[in-house]
Design a protein around this nucleic acid. Structure first.
Lengths: 138, 138
DNA sequence: TAAACCGTGCAACGGAAGTGCAATTATCGT
DNA sequence: ACGATAATTGCACTTCCGTTGCACGGTTTA
């Protein structure tokens, strides 16, 4: 049994061929991917299957989804031990408007914000936008 | 000439009847509104007209759009003197998952973040999610 | 082994965003 | 005041993405 299969089982996800392939794809990509990206990578597979696979991954804490402001939901593998539900675990994301890629900046957490009375924050989403490392030419 | 008409002209937008109505609607609402909200408020008007009106408003700095993570673009009037293009002018937004309303917290600015080398941030979007003042019962 | 369950494929739906074009309305120069 | 011109609006249609229902097939479990 491979590492990937173990990982999937650890998250109560049965390691089918499709799921292993998609997991591998996500692991190789260093950026957040949209459903359409996975579709073009796996042109032979059904759109629905990919959709439900990523949905299963999400529900079982294998990936987290990212709203980068493009209106298209993207996904990225959770870090080992990441707990996306807790506010202090929330990292920020960077969206490059040149290459349209979104990356997780896992080491950068969202700073705590003091809200007005009556507001209770349970979640947060911070997306910085601009030019990424690759496109800025360093 | 009313205040609203003056405001529109200040932003190089011709004050048509439709636009004045929509501006008034936005001004009365204290929360960010989606296109569909405007549609239901102005059921008699054409969807496209509303769409293009809000687009015009946006291009001329009358409203700014908000990505609150629901996948639906929302809009809110800019504060007088607000300059949404400058990073230091970016305020944050709060989305309540109970009433599904999004409010601008204009007095709360997005804190500055130090990015890794090569990344150039030009814009930012921060949405806090939870229970709003109205729904938390204070 | 039969039954239950889960994953996958196929088809179709629905909402939201966007476009092209014709018709109407407002603006401007003369 | 009038026609030319440009901006605004209405209508029809398209596209894209996310989502669901249903049926088939393989796998697991009693």
């Amino acid at each position: 049994m491979t590492e990937i299969e173990k990982t999937l089982e650890n998250h109560q996800v049965r390691p089918t061929a499709m799921r292993i392939l998609i997991y591998k794809y996500l692991a190789e990509k260093e950026i957040a991917v949209a459903l359409t990206d996975i579709e073009s990578a796996f042109a032979k597979a059904e759109r629905t299957t990919l959709y439900r696979t990523i949905k299963t991954f999400e529900e079982n804490g294998i990936v987290h989804y990212i709203e980068d402001g493009t209106g298209i939901t993207k996904y990225a593998l959770c870090e080992p031990g990441c707990n996306c539900e807790l506010e202090q675990d929330l990292h920020l994301h960077f969206h490059c408007h040149n290459c349209d890629e979104t990356v997780c900046l896992t080491e950068h957490k969202i700073p705590h914000i003091n809200l007005p009375d009556g507001y209770v924050a349970e979640d947060a989403n911070l997306v910085l936008k601009g030019i990424c490392e690759k496109c800025s030419g360093r």
